[in-house]
Design a protein around this nucleic acid. Structure first.
Lengths: 212, 212
DNA sequence: CGGGGCCTTGATGCTGTTCAAATAGAGTGG
DNA sequence: CCACTCTATTTGAACAGCATCAAGGCCCCG
């Protein structure tokens, strides 16, 4: 529902002026946009491709914070440093502006944008928390497929992230992800075209599985 | 660290004027302060006791969003309705003000407070997400004990919530909670005085277990 | 057409759950 | 203050779901 705010080809007419003087940056697959613990003086807006934010623990365990697509704003932090790092999921283009270095004229607008981004971030993080806390592997995967499909309007949905990314987002292993995808397909809820494209077959049933 | 902003006996001098005209409400153990899906036109500040927010799923599974203590603000929502309900953990007193019904004079201050509350909420939710996603039962419980202890300065820490509340906060069962508490005590990290009071014995070791 | 990463599939094991029962603790009335 | 009761917590044993370990297959791209 909330996700419907974003589409693959968003109308850039809304809230784009704040980004007028922004630097345009391009990244390749896997390249780091900002690092964990790095100073958070820039905020970013995805204009092409997709981005993941991730938090790495000392022993190598990784938690994906969220995935960001065209039109999404990321990198807004409360504290002075980024708690997550951000990497390009594929070839990717972003705009970057300074958080508090805007002109007097722009300050109000940028602040409003930061507020909106923070609010959206909180909502998404709360949903993610609910998913991680009390959902079975199958429910997690079902909800994930629905969420992605809701963002990318269209019959066929492309997954921009790897199985490992999905696993680290849902708190599972790649093997479990693979098995659950297989099961959902076997039961006729979704149909995969290769490993990275799928089509939803029975949305009702899938929603029921997701049960959140 | 962030938790240190709040203490059991906070200086009410800071940011208390926004609450000057607030209604003072009292609740008993288990009483509902606001309901899931209820209109979110009020925001609350705990002045005594403790509060939990929880989200209930259709099949009865429950996820605790967070625990709020003296000085904490809760009930701030982005959308029109509360996504979680709030209940008193014990005898409890809160202040309530209208989100956007303040006088022109107060509007700025209330807005700033809402912003601060949202920011703090996001940070805590992100931490909670990390805990739920990739931590073992033992790590979850260890971190929980440390977090609570950091809020309630003092040798002996009292747990205002039940084992079920802890379980629903950490995404575990009460049996697992009980076993992990037992293990941590057996290994000398903490010492329990009854079921609801404890003392940290080896903070270093506990922090190491928490590993986040 | 071949190489190499990504993904799937299978067998086995461990962590945390479930079910069941005992024990401790808090509140109540005598 | 004590006995009683009701609930919360602990403990034990069996089970299940997901992880781990180990191959094998697919697909993308040179």
């Amino acid at each position: 529902m909330t996700q419907a705010l974003y589409s693959t080809t968003p109308s850039n007419a809304v809230s784009v002026d704040e980004w007028a003087g922004a630097a345009r940056l391009t990244f390749r697959q896997g390249e780091e946009i900002y690092a964990q613990d790095e100073d958070a003086d820039l905020i970013y807006r995805v204009v092409g491709g997709a981005v993941r934010t991730s938090h790495l623990l000392a022993d190598g365990r990784r938690q994906i914070g969220d995935f960001y697509y065209e039109g999404d704003v990321l990198g807004v932090e409360m504290g002075p440093a980024h708690r997550f790092s951000a990497e390009a999921l594929g070839p990717c283009e972003v705009l970057a502006i300074r958080r508090s270095g805007s002109t007097a004229y722009d300050t109000g607008r940028v602040d409003r944008m930061i507020w909106a981004a923070t609010a959206s971030e909180l909502q998404r993080t709360q949903s993610h928390m609910l998913l991680l806390g009390r959902a079975t592997a199958c429910e997690k995967v079902a909800r994930f497929l629905l969420d992605i499909a809701d963002r990318f309007r269209g019959e066929i949905v492309a997954l921009p992230m790897s199985r490992q990314d999905m696993a680290d987002y849902l708190g599972l292993t790649i093997e479990t992800i693979s098995r659950m995808l297989g099961r959902l397909q076997a039961e006729g809820f979704v149909e995969f075209i290769g490993a990275r494209k799928y089509r939803i077959r029975r949305r009702g049933g899938l929603t029921e599985m997701a049960a959140a």
